[in-house]
Amino acid sequence: MTASLTNALLVMAILAIGVYLVAIINRAWANALGHSGAGNPFTAPFYSAASLWVAPANTTEAPDAMAWHLAPVLYLTLAAMGLALVPWSQNLVPVDLTTGIVLWGALEPLATVVIFLHGWSANAHLSMLGAYRYVSLGLSYLLVSMFVLIGVALPAESLQFSAVVESQAGLWNVIRQPLGLPLFLLVGLGISFWGPLNFADSNDLAGGTSSESSGRARLVWQAGRAVMLVAFSAIGATAFLGGWLGPVLPGFVWMILKTMVVLAMALLLGQLIPRFSPDRFLTIAWVLLLPLAFVDLVWAGLEALP
């Protein structure tokens, strides 16, 4: 019981630090790209969070009240569940399920449902458009993510994330299956609808699914997106960059460093690259990314043949 309490506290701590880290890195990139208003990366996130926390709540005309209030919380919960699956070091795995990869695979479609509900429940056209647009694209990410993760499960002969790390003792998956990490990163940007794949909360819909929410609901929603991106980076580091493996430094330090590298890369892409057209991205996803994911899987299979 104490062990599970410690693990819960660990996940909470990583969650809080993760949100802060995303805010810092994002602002640092913004400063580097010439954004004068991003403020001090270390203090500004606290001000913005406090500002959202004390901002008044609002409601829309005849929303689906339950879904409207629950969606941000559920999204954050799903992201936290994803974070709980990450093995930080050999002995420090909050939830070491034998079916960790499958549970991660279940979190992505559940997140899709929650994002849809967030936009749909407000009963407003722009947010509903964001929700439908997200769902119509979401399926294409999910398939890619599944195939890529099955690819890393093959050499490990296990669906457990810690076994996936151990299988990389000889050679990291990023070299063994070079297609995996880029594809997985793209899915991460998609599920947390960041930057070029921000189809749900985009500027051409005045904020899309979150265009109708204010105050704490919006804070929780933004935090959920940040945690989801951190969880994606951490799982990406686990599945492709050898997780806690590395010389000299202790395992969890390696893990944190690798996660931060993936996260910083994702956030830079998010700031630099403009949004694709949904139609074009749908074509890219089905015609290019999905076949690449197949190739990745076949590659992994051939490579794993004894």
Binding site: G34, G195, L272, P274
Partner: peptide, 15 residues
């Protein structure tokens, strides 16, 4: 740029 989700780059352009 802002419409196509490059708010940061847009800000730099205005500056």
């Amino acid at each position: 740029l802002w419409i196509n989700q490059s708010g940061t780059v847009a800000h730099a352009v205005f500056a």
